[in-house]
Design a protein around this nucleic acid. Structure first.
Length: 589
RNA sequence: GUGUCCGUAGCUUAACAGGAUAGAGCAAAGAUCUCCGAAGUCUUUAGAUGUGGGUUCAACUCCCAUCGGGCACACCA
């Protein structure tokens, strides 16, 4: 990255000066605190390093320090100017040319990097009950999680994506009973969910179970008949058990299909039920007990989590003998750690934030570093329709993720879900996401890609021979190969241009291509995939500006070739970033 | 009440992990296609970053207080 390149120049210079004792009272230990950045105002330069913070250490005025450091830097590929405490760098054209040839050469691997150094990360997200359709909030976790996984992999992390299925506990009973009722209703048995609001909480009264009941009757007519004939006002225990399992698997299957369709691919679906069945929960409790952090009170078994940073102790085993949800989840996280993952990243809804201290407490007690658990708390999603927030109340019909995707499409849904920082409540405006106008950033970005592809198509169709004959010792037989092998020298001609605007927009665009590297790393490092959507919009904008001032398909063969190289490089980076957020990059629209 | 997230232009938001004159998009007004996709581009109008203190050479960013909004405070999952 060029940022690092220039920071390095500064640091090297400082060390040299310190060794010669010509930088006031500074010592070598003070050298690595600086940051390089892209100035907000480009009149200062392309990159800058602020050295004012060294003033105190060196006991010299900032301007003097900057001057000393700058004078000691060998300016080969760039110019330097110093203002106040800033050292500003301006690239020479040769460096810009190198950026282009590097993008063309490395293609989709252009910004691939080894920030993660192969660190084993398990990323757990969505993790819903298999008891009903996803709501739109799940869509946010799915889009965010999969984008984060992609960008972290691209940055050298070894990422394993897991979905924890909450398929144990009373909610599966609720699901089975509810399906039982729906099947009986199909047989015209006079039965319905309780009217009483409290009692109705023991059922899933949503209509989504009706088609599943119908399907069950078609697929398993014998069982269905049994359900009907054995019904005497009470549920048959065996049949209920059967239905619980059937409903659980059916719902899970529906969820998995939706996620796949939503470009969210898990390496594993981990069933909570298997934790219980395999004895992992038992052994985890045993382990906690041996560690002396459990005690009995009021007929229940408690975990003394308050000694490890939680605000109160938590129940592990209820007085009725059942385990709490927490217990299984501790066992699950223990299992993840034992599988050898260095970092556990969870995406949880903001409503679970109180849950973090107790889980960290458990991890610490079990002998692992509590900081290996990293919880990304996602704020919730509000749906906005016709300019008004749709409240997800008991009476209003819930809008499911399927319906939203059906309405606005996978690309727009993903883009909008990823677009905002996970820390802010997201207002999802359905009309805006649907609109195919300039109000919609997804189309703006996709349009830029399609436009660039269109230029390349023209080149291929009409100008191919021209380009081909233009490249000496050409052994290439398609436009793709030719452009991929352009070297920095092919781009020199770009700077012969006399139109200032053309030069300015070209330079800005190339620098933006370079910036992709640091955007990718920041997105991975700070777990912030929204940086990619922001970057895409900026790159698209810079490309449109370039397009406005620089005609690509011109008579001058050399110039055309160079500009085609830029267009190709833009399609590569646009496509790469869109791949990472798993939004399609259409060649035509 | 306690914890937590948020508060930036009329609306949606950014600010590169404390840095130069707080950037964009939408909305509003105007300009721009004999020419590679005008779904584009260019102008113009718009801000005491909720408020009050503090730390710092430097604060949207960190600390304290305060106001407003979301979420959570179970032997539920």
């Amino acid at each position: 990255m060029l940022k690092e390149y220039f920071l390095n120049k500064v640091n090297t210079s400082i060390i040299e000066l310190v060794k010669k004792s010509s930088l006031g009272s500074m010592s070598e230990a003070d050298c690595y605190e600086l940051q390089a950045e892209i100035p907000k105002n480009n009149q200062f330069g392309d990159f800058s390093v602020n050295v004012s913070s060294l003033a105190r250490l060196a006991k010299l005025p900032p301007a003097k320090i900057a001057e000393l450091i700058a004078d000691n830097i060998n300016k080969d590929n760039f110019d330097i100017n110093v203002t106040a405490g800033f050292i500003n760098f301006k690239l020479n054209n040769s460096m810009l040319n190198n950026i282009l040839s590097e993008v063309l050469d490395k293609k989709l691997d252009y910004a691939k990097n080894n920030l993660g150094q192969g660190k084993k990360v398990i990323l757990e997200y969505v993790s819903a009950n298999p008891t009903g359709p996803f709501h739109i909030g799940h869509g946010r976790w799915a889009a965010m999680g999969s984008a984060l996984a992609n960008v972290m992999k691209y940055s050298g992390f070894n990422v394993y994506q897991e979905f924890y299925i909450n398929d144990a506990g009373s909610q599966i009973q609720k699901l089975g009973k509810s399906l039982y009722i729906r099947i009986l209703q199909e047989f015209k048995v006079d039965i319905d969910f309780p009217n009483d609001e409290e009692e109705a909480k023991n059922f899933y009264t949503g209509e989504y179970l009706i088609p599943i009941a119908k399907e069950f009757i078609t697929k398993e007519p014998e069982k269905a008949a049994e359900i009907k004939t054995l019904y005497k006002g009470n549920f048959d225990a065996e049949l209920l058990k059967y239905l619980c399992k059937y409903a659980r698997l059916t719902m899970l299957n529906l969820q998995q299909k939706l996620l796949e369709n939503f470009n969210t691919h898990f390496d594993n679906y981990f069933s909570e039920l298997t934790l219980h069945e395999s004895g992992l929960v038992e052994s985890c409790i045993k382990k906690l007990n041996e560690l002396g952090v459990l005690y009995e009170k009021d007929g229940a078994l408690w975990f003394a989590s308050s000694k490890y940073g939680d605000d109160q102790d938590r129940v592990i085993k209820k007085s009725d003998g059942a385990y709490t949800y927490l217990t299984a989840d501790i066992a699950y996280h223990y299992n993840k750690l034992q599988r050898g993952f260095d970092t556990l990243i969870n995406i949880w809804g903001a409503d679970h934030h109180g849950y973090i201290p107790r889980m960290k407490a458990a991890i610490e007690v079990l002998g692992y570093n509590p900081n290996s658990l990293e919880v990304l708390l996602g704020q919730l999603v509000n749906l906005v329709m016709n300019g008004e927030q749709v409240r997800m109340g008991k009476r209003t019909k819930m809008i499911t993720l399927d319906e939203l995707i059906e309405e606005v499409g996978v690309d727009a849904t993903r883009y909008w879900m990823i677009m905002r920082s996970i820390d802010t409540t997201l207002d999802f405006d359905v009309e805006l996401a649907k609109s195919k106008t300039d109000e919609n950033p997804v189309f703006y970005v996709q349009y830029a890609h399609a436009r660039a592809c269109s230029i390349l198509r023209h080149a291929q169709a009409e100008k191919f021979d021209v380009i081909n004959s233009n490249i000496s010792n050409s052994a290439y037989n398609n436009e793709e190969d030719i452009l991929s092998n352009l070297s920095a020298s092919n781009f020199k001609i770009l700077w012969d241009e006399t139109d200032e605007k053309a030069i300015e927009t070209t330079k800005k665009l190339i620098l933006k291509l370079e910036e992709y590297k640091s955007v990718v790393q920041n997105a991975a490092k700070y777990r912030t995939p929204y940086l990619l959507t922001k970057y895409l919009q900026e790159l698209a904008s810079n490309f449109h500006q370039f397009y406005t001032y620089s005609k690509v398909l011109v008579e001058d063969k050399d110039l055309m070739t160079a500009r085609l190289g830029i267009v190709k490089a833009v399609t590569i980076v646009l496509k790469s970033a869109m791949n990472l957020i798993a939004v399609s990059a259409p060649e035509r629209m």
